[in-house]
Design a protein around this nucleic acid. Sequence first.
DNA 1: TTTAGTGTATTAGTAAGATAGAACACTAAA
DNA 2: TTTAGTGTTCTATCTTACTAATACACTAAA
Lengths: 123, 123
Amino acid sequence: MEFIGTQPIYLQIVDLIAENILSRKWVEGERLASVRELAIQIEVNPNTVLRSFTYLQNRNVIFNKRGIGYFVAESAYEVLLNIKRTEFIKKNAPQFFRTMDLLDIKISELNRLYTLYKKEHHS
Amino acid sequence: MEFIGTQPIYLQIVDLIAENILSRKWVEGERLASVRELAIQIEVNPNTVLRSFTYLQNRNVIFNKRGIGYFVAESAYEVLLNIKRTEFIKKNAPQFFRTMDLLDIKISELNRLYTLYKKEHHS
DNA sequence: TTTAGTGTATTAGTAAGATAGAACACTAAA
DNA sequence: TTTAGTGTTCTATCTTACTAATACACTAAA
């Protein structure tokens, strides 16, 4: 797996998992790859994966059955959607708009970029 | 100064300086606060400030007169605008749109958020 | 020339993220 | 009971960002 920028790897793994849940690829009750398995898959140390799992477990997104593995929690989707939406509205969007202003990019141009994006990612 | 998240402090300082230039608060030829001065102002180590300055000097945004100080470079505004606009179109916007999709936020809602933002930051 | 304010360079230390390897405990299934 | 696959814990090491303190070199002005 490719890790980018200044974000710690364990948080990038958290994002990866969150995205799989938000996109409904992984659903409630589903078992995640084991700590060791995932570590091999994405080429990081098992301890780093464990840190990501612990982080998500503390936020009730996944839970653990000792000796068996980690599973997507009951309300994982709702919890994540709530966390991420709040973050989007309170932090991401304002920061994004601020950058737009700084670069003198108009909302009309943003709408144009969005249309282009949608054409490329027909979803 | 408040530093946030996982972004290294020296890069947050770089952003701070870049924003002052992009917003035309600091103009071509203007002298920046000295390494020691700025370090005290924003409460970081002088070496950390120096790292930010060196970073920007390498990108031709500021330049240095030994024994005198650092100054905003001739084409700093254009250089920054170019760098940041490219980054916005190639990276920020696509990532932002991707998050929107993941959270099922429509472009109409984004436009609504933008209107709200503009009301609060009458610029 | 002297002085104060610049940048520059060096060395050392701290803290967090990440790696590495090993040992241990629990669970399910053979 | 045994075994393989889980999670868990621990200790040690490495790297990077950052801090800290100091010394040195350059410049402008008194």
